[in-house]
Nucleic acid binder design. Structure first.
Length: 461
RNA sequence: GGCCCCUUCGUCUAGCGGUUAGGAUCCAUGGUUUUCAUCCAUGUUACAGGAGUUCAAUUCUCCUAGGGGUCACCA
């Protein structure tokens, strides 16, 4: 059984990069009929924030990722960590260090000056004298002093770290007794049965430290998968300043969750040439071994295309329901199907879709100058009047095809091209060029509104 | 700076010693469309550089360059 986790620190909204690692973790767990759990890393109380946890859960809900079991909060596990710290202390695998922060800083400064790697010198490692007064010690773990630590990464392969150039006896508990990150991560992952750790490769250099903890405590190592970063257009780690990185912003902008997930799953992962993945397909096909080794640049062009694709392939019921979140109520509209069928092929986002629909439903309050100039040449007004009279005297006008026949009659009788009536009529109906077929528009708004809009433009132009 | 990772079209990627280096997106052109969009077709564009190994390197090894990540009593 595979158990994976997503372990954000609650400092803000759910980041798009976080969602991708969460998705990868979820897919790999569920692909193996395993568990995907959520752990909130809130050991730093000063930076902790409850709203952030809610925001993460809300975003998970929107995209349809569900975690198994209860959420684990590190802030509630102090006892557990304390127990392991005491154990390490007793076993002599960890020790108290009475060096003050100032002393430490000074030492680091000197080391940097001397072009040495800043590191703790281990001065209290074997200390058994009388501790200095007035100093609350930190607890340091006895890390190996020589040799190598190998991370067998599921994405990057075997990576060897030379202990001498990366390790020192790092702090596992602060002077106030609270445990530090690399320590609690290892403990929690081990205790929660996480056997596949999928996370950003910015954690790669932490991994040796965590391995030291695993080994000191005698825990079995999980399989690590370090997923390459997502970069911004400048090739740097994607951060909050790079525009839309909040997952919920994508909802606001009118993206469908399935489009966003499809987009994210293809960022760094692939399955041959396949671009479109339903959630079930992701589940069936995802494997971290197919994750790329290199970082990818975040560019939403393809997201727009995917979103348009998913809109096109959504049922009208689904769309109508979704559009309610964008201030568009269509449930009572008798031509809903015709309308949605016409608009969904031409929308990139739900926001876009809602505004296109409003452009049809709402009587135009102004006319695009260029369009008017182009359409109202020669006998355009006459033609419009003619058409108006024809539909006014007609009883059976419902479907687009009904209106289409009326258009054809005018075109035939007057021996003109379709454009001669199409263009002025289009401007009358929506105030500008572009949009779905005019017969469709007329069918949707109905005969009375069509007549009214023609009257309007005849009076203004 | 030390350590680690990475490098195929602008972007996302396929490739796992022998390919006209494929797909998608974007862009351009043409067709369809009364318009716009969709859709369809076509097209431009890539193996960072240099050494090796090999009959043969995009593919394996090394070096260089470039990019990124990380070096806390943050997570």
């Amino acid at each position: 059984m595979i158990t994976t986790r997503f372990a954000p620190s609650p400092t803000g909204y759910l980041h798009i990069g976080g969602l991708r690692t969460a998705l990868f973790s979820y897919l790999w767990a569920k692909h193996n009929s395993g568990k995907f759990v959520l752990r909130i890393e809130d050991t730093d109380r000063s930076r902790n924030n409850e709203d952030a946890t809610k925001a993460i859960i809300e975003a998970f809900k929107w995209v349809g990722l569900e975690h198994d079991g209860e959420i684990t909060y590190q802030s509630k596990r102090d006892e557990i960590y304390k127990k392991y710290i005491d154990r390490l202390l007793q076993e002599g695998r960890a020790y108290r260090c009475y060096m003050s922060k100032d002393e430490l800083d000074a030492m680091r400064e000197a080391q940097t000056q001397a072009k040495e790697r800043p590191r703790y010198d281990g001065r209290y490692r074997d200390f058994d004298g009388i501790p200095p007064e007035g100093i609350e010690p930190v607890i340091r773990i006895k890390a190996p002093t020589s040799g190598t630590i190998t991370v067998d990464d599921g994405i990057k392969g075997k990576i060897e770290f030379n202990v001498d150039d990366i390790l020192d006896d790092f702090i596992i508990a602060r002077s106030d007794g609270t445990p530090t990150y690399n320590f609690v991560v290892a403990i929690d992952d081990a205790l929660m049965g996480i056997n596949s750790v999928i996370r950003g490769d910015d954690h790669l250099s932490n991994t040796p430290k965590q391995i030291v903890v695993y080994e000191a405590l005698g825990f079995a190592l999980p399989k690590f998968y370090h997923v390459p970063m997502i970069h911004n257009e400048n090739g740097k780690k994607l951060s909050k300043r790079d525009g839309a990185t909040d997952v919920m912003m994508y909802k606001e902008m009118g993206y469908l969750p399935e489009a966003l997930l499809n987009f994210l799953v293809r960022l760094g992962w692939s399955h041959g040439d396949q671009e479109i993945f339903s959630f079930d397909e992701m589940l069936a096909l995802f494997n971290p071994k197919d994750i790329n080794k290199s970082a990818s640049i975040y560019n939403t062009e393809k997201l727009d295309w995917l979103n348009a694709h998913y809109i096109k392939n959504s049922s009208n019921d689904t769309l109508a329901k979704l559009l309610e979140d964008y201030d568009l109520l269509l449930s009572s509209h008798d031509k809903r199907e015709i309308l949605l069928d016409a608009i969904k092929d031409r929308s990139k986002t739900l926001v876009d879709m809602a505004s296109q629909i409003k452009e049809i439903l709402d009587t135009p309050d102004s006319y695009d100058e260029k369009a008017v100039k182009k359409a109202f040449k020669g006998e355009a007004k006459d033609i419009l009047k003619d058409f108006k009279q024809k539909i006014e005297s007609s009883q059976e006008l419902h479907l687009p095809s009904d209106y289409h026949h009326m258009l054809e009659r005018v075109v035939d009788e007057r021996e003109i091209g379709f454009g001669k009536i199409g263009q002025p009529l289009r401007v009358a109906l929506v105030g500008k060029m572009g949009g779905p077929g005019i017969d469709t528009i007329m069918s949707v708004i109905g005969k009375d509104e069509t007549v009214a809009r023609i009257d309007n433009i005849l009076a203004t132009v």
